[in-house]
Design a protein around this nucleic acid. Structure first.
Length: 259
DNA sequence: ATGACAATCAGAGATTGA
């Protein structure tokens, strides 16, 4: 079972690029972030024509997540529990029915800038709720994963110029500590479990020629509970996508599970 | 310190992103 995550930075602007990538990479499941579309506005048909079931959790203008799947989905759930006042569409989960069933959660974690401030408080509050949900996934004792745009640079080696990110919400100590606290529940970070190559990134800013200088950061992650980690056979980043026409500022990352 | 760039909504320029 190949499961991918891709922050597409707007489905309307990215549909041709998304379709090309889906045809080539052919993931069984694709978790999308920043669809920037309401559910009714999402272009389901061309994606369904490629054999995917489409489940969205959108909102107007910003954020929004989706699950595309060639395999049957069950028990779809939208929104990260724990705060009824949170209206931002950043979380969707479903059980994917392969040879083995896998609980798959797609997430778009708040950016949090400027920090400190209310947006940073929201990021940390969201991460506390993520920790709660993560704990439940550990207690499931069935294969489960959480993947998406975490907006977290875990370590200095995950940025080309870490010093420039010191005070940024993506790299501040509180952000990284909250991320580590989730990892420390017993999750495996798939990329680092399979790949120790230096200067491995998933995001390059559109500005200042960041891509051409490989001035990137690694902020899109797959976290696997032990039962999912036991099934992990590969994890890769589709870096070449960034070089194409009208690219997203993120590239896809994917795992292969023996499931 | 700002803007470099891109997308959205709206129909110009503010807002958001990372």
């Amino acid at each position: 079972m190949k499961i991918a995550s891709f922050n597409i930075n707007g489905i309307k602007a990215r549909l041709p690029a998304l379709l090309d990538w889906l045809k080539e990479a052919a993931p069984d499941v694709a978790l999308l972030q920043e669809i920037k579309s309401v559910d009714e506005g999402f272009p389901r048909t061309p994606i369904e024509d490629l054999g995917y079931t489409v489940e969205t959790h959108g909102q107007k203008g910003f954020n929004g997540v989706a699950i595309l799947s060639k395999l049957p989905l069950e028990d779809i759930s939208r929104g990260l529990p724990g705060n009824d006042d949170d209206v931002q569409a950043r979380w969707i989960e479903a059980t994917v029915i392969g040879q083995t069933a896998v609980r798959v959660c797609g997430l778009y974690l708040p950016n949090g800038n400027p920090a400190p401030g209310p947006k940073y408080d929201y990021k940390l509050e969201w991460m506390e709720r993520l920790h709660t949900r993560a704990q439940e996934l550990m207690e499931l004792e069935e294969p489960a994963l959480m993947a998406g745009d975490y907006n977290i640079i875990p370590q200095a080696e995950d940025a080309k110029r870490p010093d420039d990110w010191r005070d940024d919400a993506l790299f501040r100590p509180e952000s990284r500590a909250a991320y580590r606290k989730i990892l420390n529940l017993g999750f495996t970070e798939a990329l680092r479990a399979r790949n120790t190559a230096p200067q491995t990134y998933t995001f390059w800013d559109y500005q200042a020629g960041a891509w051409n200088k490989n001035d990137g950061i690694r902020i899109d992650h797959f976290l696997l509970n032990p039962q999912a980690a036991d099934l992990l056979s590969d994890c890769q980043i589709d870096k070449d996508i960034r070089d194409r026409e009208k690219p997203s500022d993120h590239v896809p990352i994917w795992v292969e599970l023996q499931a």
